[in-house]
Amino acid sequence: MSNPVLQISDLQVSYYTDTGRATALDGVSLALNVGEKLGLVGESGSGKSTMALAMMRMIKPPGRIEGGRVLVGDTDLTSLTDEQMLRARLSKIAYIPQGAMNSLNPVMRIGNQMMDAIKAHVSGDAKADMRERCVEALESVDLKPAVFKMYPHELSGGMKQRVCIAIGILLKPQVIIADEPTSALDVVTQRQVMETIDRVQKQIGAAVILIGHDMGLMAQFVDKVAVMYAGRLAELSTVRQMFTSPAHPYAQALISSLPNLENKGVFQGIPGLAPSLLRLPSGCAFHPRCPRVMDICTSVRPDLNTLEDGRNVACHLYTEKA
């Protein structure tokens, strides 16, 4: 087994709100190898985006990282000083946020924004080198060098999103986190953007974490899928295992709620509502909605166990057999 490029262990994040402490991320661990693509899925509020922000150390008050480690290569991001972390962002770990295309400054040329990104994270590059690097990055996302001199309003949504991907890969990071990179784009553009990420990822050999709730996109794009529920991993398995035989009842519900061309008009949502992080149910957080709930589920929280076929599942259905 090759050395993992990203190792997250026991990551813990809480938000301190007026109504109490909400544990948004509760002891999440996972590892990712070079060139691997992981999909992180879950309902809103399940901790997907918190996970991304925690990895980038961009959790803002009232949120706080309360424990755990994030290793990229052999650098422990959680032990870096703020100054070091600033440099690590973009060069070791890059983040393409949701609706990234709206983060471009409308009164600044694309090229200047890209050079700014380089200047903020590495020092001492000659201007000509930086420019060359930017144009290279633009080309790798299929944009003409002329885009360097353009303003954001001259570009379409898909092009702006690709500019943001270009900024993300400027410093050839080892890990790219893409948080719903295509949620505001139409299907054709979405496919273009995803194919761009795919190609770029292969070029620079980075590991990718794709955050989202579109299982279709996951099926087309990732190697492994991690399903989150109420701040914890419910299941982590390969994309094939996930789509052919999901183990966790929540993952099963997610998969069977997917639309396809056979079951027209059948809307199989997941019954019940996502729990509030302020008052999580006892035991397994999913038990009030679980169709296969047992007595033990209401009192004992299941740990993430590795099954025989290599997948990780946090559910009592599988602990007895193990």
Binding site: V187, G216, L217, M218, A219, V239, L258
Partner: peptide, 12 residues
């Protein structure tokens, strides 16, 4: 053709 089908046997 561009719909990401949640189906491993139906690729983009």
């Amino acid at each position: 053709d561009s719909i990401p089908w949640p189906d491993l046997n139906r690729r983009w």
